[in-house]
Amino acid sequence: MEALLEVRELSLRFGGITALSQIGLAVAEGETLAVIGPNGSGKTSLFNCITSIYRPTSGAISFRGEPLTRHSPDEVTRLGIARTFQNLRLFHNMSVLDNLMVGRHLHFRKNLLAAVLRLRGEETRHRRRCEEIVEFLNLEPVRKTRAGDCPYGVQKRVELGRALATEPRLLLLDEPVSGLTQEEKEEFAYWIHEIRGRFGITILLVEHDLRVASRLAGRMVALDHGVKIAEGTPAAVQRHPDVIKAYLGE
């Protein structure tokens, strides 16, 4: 099967620090791939390269066969990649609903005059899509609440909803269940499972909670100090001696 996302010999350096070194991986359409690794191993940096927030020092990334090196982050999103952030980046002063509506931005038929004259056909059309997401993620009670006033667990859901609102082909989740209570983790794992099942979205997932990661992902990749040290089924990767060494130290 042809890969949806392909990363080849990707390297990223910040001055003396090598955040990523010759990383290669492929994500197949419809799968869930988990990236694991200890703190500072380069997981978030990998996401930042894929979404064009960082320019890789060398290497190539391609999505649906198209190279992604010259695109700005918003163009990458338009091609069908959405993401969430490890340390939430919500629009704090907007309502939850408006946060989701920003996710719809790229699907709007944009007409300056219609905006100035308050012709809101597009608005209601997209509002309907957002309400579907509101319902899916149980956000009804906080729909009109300022995002910054929501509790942490809700904010994580809002960010997931905003990413879903862009209607991605590939969804990058950076530690989606970190900082959540056990119950919230269960809920979130269910949603992630459903996103793949119901919407057919491919998922690339960074997760520290290995129990959750191995439950959700069909395959796993392990990084350490910016180097890929293992790849395979979750069970095999977690048994890999280099992975055990990376997590437990020498």
Binding site: T51, I53, S72, P73, D74, T77, R78, A82, R83, F85, R89, L90, F91, H92, N93, M94, V102, G103, H105, L106, R162, A163, T166
Partner: peptide, 10 residues
């Protein structure tokens, strides 16, 4: 509110 999040959302 967040220029990076704005960009990443298109």
């Amino acid at each position: 509110d967040s220029d990076i999040a704005a960009e990443v959302n298109g």
